[in-house]
Amino acid sequence: MSTSAFADSQHPITWPAGFTAAASFTFDVDAESCVIAHDPTSTRRMSLMSHQSYGPKVAVPRLLQILARQDVRATFFIPGFTAESYPDVVRQIVDGGHEVAHHGYLHEPMQGIDAATEASYIDRGLEALEKVAGIRPVGYRAPWWELNWHSPALLADRGFLYDSSLLDGDAPYRMSVSSGSPAGAGDTRDIVEIPVDWTLDDWEQYAFYPGVTGSGVIESPAKVLEMWTLEAQAHHSQGSCFVLTNHPFISGRPSKAVALEQLIERVKGMDGMWVTTLEKIAEHTKATVTEVHTHARIDVPVAPGFGARFKPGRVQVPALS
C-alpha cells in the first residue's frame, strides 16, 4: 500500500518486541448446532444436516493440515454440543497445538436472554469442553456475536480472560464488567475484548442454504481473498489486530480453503506481523494495557417520544496497588 491507515486512537496498544501488528485466524466450529438452535426441526432435513456436518468431518482435518503446513496456531471456538458430537475432532485440534475456546453449548440465540439462562449455557459448554478435551477455555465468543450487558460479568465470574464478540475497535482493549454486573459500579474487574468485524467473516461472503440463510449469491474466493488481503494490509499498516472468523463448513470447502491458505501466506509475509492465537493476544493486552473501558449505555424508558438518556462510556486507569 502506498499510504498507511490511521490507527484506532481509542484503543492504543504496543506489540511484543519485533512486532508492529497482530493477526489471528479463528474458526467457529458450529457444525449442526447453529441451525438446530435456529430451528429444532432442522434435524428432520437430512441434506441440511449433511451440509453442516461437512465442517467437522471433512473441513476441520483439511484446515488442520493447512495450518500445520503454514506453521500457524489458530483459535477454534467450539460449542459444547459440537464437542460432544465430534470428540475426536476436538482432540485433533488440541493435538495440533491450537487454542480451544467457548462458543456456547448449542449455539443458542442470545439476544435478550436473562443472566441465569445465559449462565446455564456457559456452564454446560464449559462442562462439555472439559470432559471432551480436558481443558477449561479462557476465551469466549458469543453465538452470532450477540453479547448481553450482563455477559462480561458472567465470564469474569468463571475466570475467562477474554471475549471476542464486540465490534467497536480495531485493536484489543480491557473492558470493565461493571455495566451489567450485579455489583454495578463497585465491580472493579475487567476482561480483555478482542473486536471482530462482519467484513472479516466468511458467513457474509459464502454462506447459503435454501430456507436457512444467505441471499443465494456466493462470492468468488478470488474476490474474497482480495478483500481480506486489503483488510490485513490496512490493519498491518496501522498497527492494529486483524481477526478473521471462518466456519469450517464454509471456508473448509476446496477452493475457499485454497484461498484461505493463500491469505495466511500473505499475512505471514507482512513484516512485523505477529500471527498467533487470541489467547496470546489477550495475555499481552492484559499485561501491557492499563486503560479500562466501559461502554456507553442508552436508556429509552418507554418510547423515543418520551425521551432517551445516553450514559457515555469512559476510560479509567486503575491505581497501582
Rank of each mutant, 00 (worst) to 15 (best):
H98N: 13
H98V: 13
H98L: 10
V100R: 05
A101Q: 07
H102Q: 14
H102T: 12
G104Y: 07
L106V: 07
M110T: 13
G112I: 03
I113M: 14
I113D: 08
D114A: 11
A115E: 12
A116E: 10
A116T: 05
T117N: 04
T117G: 04
E118L: 01
A119V: 01
S120N: 11
I122Q: 02
I122E: 00
I122F: 09
D123E: 15
R124Q: 15
R124W: 10
R124M: 14
G125D: 06
L126G: 01
E127D: 14
A128G: 11
A128Q: 12
L129P: 10
V132D: 04
A133N: 07
I135Y: 07
R136N: 06
V138C: 09
V138N: 00
V138F: 05
V138Y: 02
G139F: 04
G139P: 03
R141G: 02
A142P: 01
A142H: 01
P143C: 10
W144V: 02
W144R: 11
W144L: 03
W145P: 00
L147K: 01
W149R: 11
H150F: 11
H150Q: 10
H150K: 07
H150D: 08
S151D: 06
S151N: 11
A153W: 14
L154Y: 07
A156N: 09
G159V: 14
G159W: 09
G159A: 12
Y162A: 07
Y162Q: 07
D163F: 00
S164C: 06
S165V: 00
D170Y: 12
D170E: 15
A171V: 00
A171P: 03
R174H: 12
R174D: 10
R174L: 13
R174N: 15
S176I: 02
S176H: 03
V177C: 10
S178Y: 01
S178L: 07
S179I: 02
P182W: 08
P182H: 06
G184V: 09
A185Q: 15
A185W: 06
D187M: 09
D187K: 10
T188F: 08
R189C: 15
R189G: 12
D190W: 13
I191R: 00
I191E: 03
I191H: 03
E193M: 09
E193K: 04
I194M: 07
I194E: 02
I194N: 01
V196A: 03
W198H: 06
L200N: 10
L200K: 02
D201V: 05
D201C: 15
